[in-house]
Design a protein around this nucleic acid. Sequence first.
DNA 1: TATTTACCCTAGTAATTTAGTCGGTTATAA
DNA 2: TTATAACCGACTAAATTACTAGGGTAAATA
Lengths: 157, 157
Amino acid sequence: MKLTTKGRYAVTAMLDLAIHAKDKPVTLQDISGRQGISLSYLEQLFAKLRRNELVKSSRGPGGGYQLQEPASDIAISRVIDAVNESTDVTACGSKGNCHNGQQCITHDLWCELSEQIHSFLSSITLQTVINKQQAKEQVELLDNREQNNTFILSQVS
Amino acid sequence: MKLTTKGRYAVTAMLDLAIHAKDKPVTLQDISGRQGISLSYLEQLFAKLRRNELVKSSRGPGGGYQLQEPASDIAISRVIDAVNESTDVTACGSKGNCHNGQQCITHDLWCELSEQIHSFLSSITLQTVINKQQAKEQVELLDNREQNNTFILSQVS
DNA sequence: TATTTACCCTAGTAATTTAGTCGGTTATAA
DNA sequence: TTATAACCGACTAAATTACTAGGGTAAATA
């Protein structure tokens, strides 16, 4: 499990698709404009996303990309794994052929942690993130209304 | 929140400390030998860990590093944040001054996710990871014993 | 006090990854 | 047929990672 800006770009682009490609495909040009990611970098990312069957493409005018599955079926971990080629984390390549047993203990510990992070990100889907955000906006809306009602108090804090 | 090999090295080293520096300090030389990380790279990482008050050092012969707090009080997120200088994730620098509202939606979504990952890693301490690993070893021990009892069956699968 | 031991700091550097450019080709809809 | 937009590969600048080198400084032991 690796979590870099590359994975963030991929997740961001997938979220953009989930939001904007409901009925008709969305072009990379659109995503590029909205999210501030260069077109050719998006092309590279989407080649991987396509190979991993996370998006489907249609060519020609009116073409573009769509999610291959509903947003509620696409876990964040799948998106990140798709663009971050699998990296062998351990020094010994998980073969357990370290010189002495001691040496591998913390490797195992890290693998255990990495596994936990992975399974956590497997439990979160694109839809989860969108829902969470919408809920947050609701709260903020209520907060703002509350704030207007108690304007003087809010200035104190 | 960023999760790279750099953070992994830091967590690995901290886990090594948690395990080996119970009573007396552990030298970076020892960690370097056990974990296969170069000494001067460790020095760089530990400079940051020290600045973030995660470890304490003692000089002179018999000196080295120890955790500054019990392993059960040190969350993984703190270790990773300590070595990965805080990076502004959003294009607009979280200022919300994007050209149009649309543009920032997925930025917000990513921040929300990033926050979730961070709070998840805040809930896991060095001790958690060690305990989890020990529990796993227990299960494997039982599995192996079971396997010996049903040796013929295990050869089939 | 002298010397060992180990932390501390800066600068530089090779390797890798990230992010982007360029120049095309193929498929498709209007 | 023409414009559109996905697809493809090679190449490159910038940033980051992982490491090296070397000269300090502080503390403990003898």
